[in-house]
Amino acid sequence: MSKRIKNIVGALIAGIVIYNSIYFRPLDEKLAEEEVVVFDVLNFVDKMWDADLLTTYDSATDFTILLNLLVNEPNLAFEKEAQALGIGNIGYFKVQGEGIVLSVNENNVLIKVGDRIVEIETEFIFGNAVRDASGLIKINDYDETSDFNSISESINDKIRNEVVPPFKLKVAKGDRIVFKGAIELNNAHLNLDQPEVIPVSLQIVP
């Protein structure tokens, strides 16, 4: 009798252990979990560029007005006009304006905007200025930080390959140009001597 009870208890324990050790799930559910979704950044930026990004830059602040505000009330300028993803001194600004070309150089085009010399970047199109100044992209919308970083790379590629070359082919000293773009500034180390604009749109005005 005791042997039978021992066997029953043993079988019960074994049954509980086995029951908790294995489980059955539909295979397609498991496969779906493990599927890696690759972020198609090129497609994403292509769609975003025309539909959203250029539209948002249409409402960029006039560069001369912004510069005056930065000179006279920098904290207010940062508070009102800057976009920043997180915490720190750096802010990104959407700007638009027009100016006269002073020189066409290997790495940039220098223009006169009001009484200021402004640098339109044509070589060093890097960084997050255009993405972050737009205010359209938020880091917490992306589980993978690398996907988030790739958006800036793709935007910069687009500027480098599509915005700058046709402009650089034709632009010459003395031309009047209209530009839209982004600038990066540091509130704690503010330098307005020759602001650098990463362009999203460049037009030579006839």
Binding site: A84, L85, G86, I87, G88, N89, I90, I139, N140, T145, N186, H189
Partner: peptide
């Protein structure tokens, strides 16, 4: 916020 970036200078 899940991620809070601190800018690097």
């Amino acid at each position: 916020a899940q991620k809070v970036p601190i800018t690097v200078e």
